[in-house]
Simulated assay, not measured.
Amino acid sequence: MDVNNGPSEGSGNGTMDIEQSLLQQFSCMGTTDKEELVQQLQKLLGSSLNYSTAAFFLDMNNWNLQAAICSYLDIENSTKLPSMTLVQDPVASESESIEPNVSFQKVWHIINNGPDQWPTGCYAQCSDGNSFNGGRVVLPPLKPFEDTHLTVHMVSPPTPGVYQSKWRLCTEKGAYFGDPMWVIVTVVEEGTMALTQQLSSFSELGASPQPEVAHNPFIPQRSHLEHTQDAAPQGGRDYNMW
């Protein structure tokens, strides 16, 4: 795609919803800070572009912002993104408590709810928040309405607090697709979990105590026959020894 720095007519097919004046504004900034250029490209193209893909397209176009945008749109507009939905989505307010530096795993049940098979090379990665040392997970090319369990091995942060992590599926080219997946973890001080479990155990033991009947050895035990005769109508013999 040819790049034209001036305003062009009928450019809606190429740049879609991106305003030409906004492109010129970023181009005129003349910044050479690569980190800032990556952030600008992500802002223009929205959540469909992750950091590594933005850096790739900028590097491919000699870090020219407008040229990188045009290159990305040329490729992505001709490619239909896969579909994915969560079968079981964790409640956003749900928080798991865990001690610092503890290994754990997060599992999501996902399904290809689209009409096409996923392309090879799709993967899951952290797109925002704390990654909990979780790495990229490669996914199989699911067929339509085929499901799988995505498992990510993680480690809790060393400092107590509330942490969250947002995970997304990506195509081989780095475009996000499907439902976002969340991890919300509350890291507590070391030893707190054991104390909480002990208190819970004590509560369960004392929740409904069964009354114990003390046996007095000086009171003779009554036989089954005596209990039966006590239940007889009035007039029967009294077997009470006292």
Rank of each mutant, 00 (worst) to 15 (best):
L150Y: 09
S165M: 01
S95E: 14
Y123A: 06
D116A: 07
Q117T: 15
M154C: 15
V137G: 11
V138P: 02
K143M: 07
I111G: 07
Y163H: 03
S95I: 13
L169R: 05
L142W: 06
G129M: 04
V155N: 13
A124V: 09
S83L: 03
C126P: 01
G129V: 06
H109G: 05
V102M: 12
N133A: 04
T171P: 04
K173I: 01
M84S: 10
R168L: 13
T171M: 07
L169Y: 05
G121A: 08
G134W: 00
L150M: 10
N133H: 07
C170W: 13
T148S: 10
S156Q: 12
P90H: 13
N112D: 11
I110E: 11
K143R: 07
L142G: 08
L86K: 02
L86I: 01
N133L: 06
G129A: 05
W108C: 03
V137M: 13
H109Y: 12
L169Q: 09
F132H: 06
N112K: 11
S103P: 00
T148I: 13
S97P: 00
I111H: 06
V138L: 14
M84I: 06
S83G: 04
Q105Y: 04
Q117F: 01
P158R: 14
Q88I: 07
N133F: 05
T159C: 14
H109N: 14
S131K: 08
W108Y: 07
A92T: 14
S103C: 01
S127M: 04
W167T: 05
P115I: 01
V91E: 15
S127W: 10
H153D: 10
C126N: 12
L139T: 11
W167S: 06
P90V: 13
V162C: 02
T85S: 12
P160K: 09
Y163C: 01
I111T: 15
G161K: 11
T85Q: 11
S131A: 14
Q117A: 13
E172Y: 02
Y163P: 02
E96K: 08
T159F: 15
F104M: 02
K173E: 11
G121L: 07
G135T: 07
K173G: 00
W108L: 01
T148F: 10
Q117W: 01
P144V: 02
S93A: 15
